Amino acid sequence: MKKFFLYSAAFITAIIALCLLAPVAGLLISGALLAAGLHYYTESKSTFGKVMSLVVALAGLVSALSNIPGFIGLAAIGVLFYLYKARKNEKIEFLPGKKEEEDPFTNFEREWANLNK
């Protein structure tokens, strides 16, 4: 029964994500406008160039903030990714940290314990 609910939720989320694919593309374009405006603002030497870059960045910001269906589409894609990982029983790390094997102090302690045996 758990698999049935998991597949049902994934199916509904996939339909929502597909329906909101165009607003997500619009959100991507708005974000690109915002990023381009901020990039050219930092690179510009003249006052006119800075003002025009800020106008482009503000247009991208207003466009991105007013695109609520795009944010819902992004959330649906995120939930779909989570359900896909849950189906495969994979652990999802939102903030990946250092693994124990990569920590040099843990390796040192393990080797020191092996030497003292």
Rank of each mutant, 00 (worst) to 15 (best):
M1K: 10
K2H: 06
F4M: 08
Y7L: 10
A10Y: 02
A10D: 00
F11A: 15
T13R: 00
I15R: 03
I15H: 01
I16P: 01
L18P: 00
C19W: 02
L20Q: 00
L20I: 00
L21H: 04
L21I: 13
L21R: 07
P23L: 00
P23N: 01
V24K: 03
V24D: 00
V24M: 10
V24Q: 04
A25I: 08
G26K: 08
L27P: 02
L27G: 03
L27V: 03
L28K: 07
I29C: 00
S30Y: 08
G31C: 11
A36S: 14
Y40S: 05
Y40R: 11
Y41N: 09
T42F: 11
E43N: 10
E43W: 03
K45P: 03
S46A: 02
G49W: 02
G49Q: 03
G49R: 02
K50L: 03
K50A: 02
V51N: 07
L54N: 11
L54A: 08
L54Q: 09
V55Y: 09
V56C: 06
V56T: 10
V56K: 06
A57C: 08
L58W: 12
L58S: 15
L58V: 15
L58H: 04
L58P: 06
A59M: 13
L61E: 10
A64Y: 03
S66E: 13
S66T: 15
S66H: 12
N67K: 09
I68R: 09
G70F: 02
G73P: 02
G73H: 01
G73V: 04
G73F: 00
A75K: 03
I77G: 00
G78Q: 01
V79Y: 04
V79H: 02
V79L: 12
F81W: 12
Y82D: 07
Y82M: 13
L83M: 06
L83V: 05
Y84L: 12
A86G: 03
K88R: 15
K88N: 14
K88M: 12
E90F: 11
K91L: 15
I92D: 14
E93T: 12
F94I: 14
F94E: 02
L95Y: 12
L95K: 11
P96V: 08
G97F: 09
G97P: 01
K98P: 05
K98A: 14
E100P: 01
E101K: 11
E101L: 07
E102C: 02
D103T: 02
F105L: 09
F105D: 11
F105S: 05
T106V: 15
T106G: 03
N107R: 15
N107Y: 08
F108V: 06
F108C: 05
E109V: 09
W112E: 12
W112H: 11
W112Y: 14
A113K: 08
K117F: 06
K117S: 05
K117G: 08
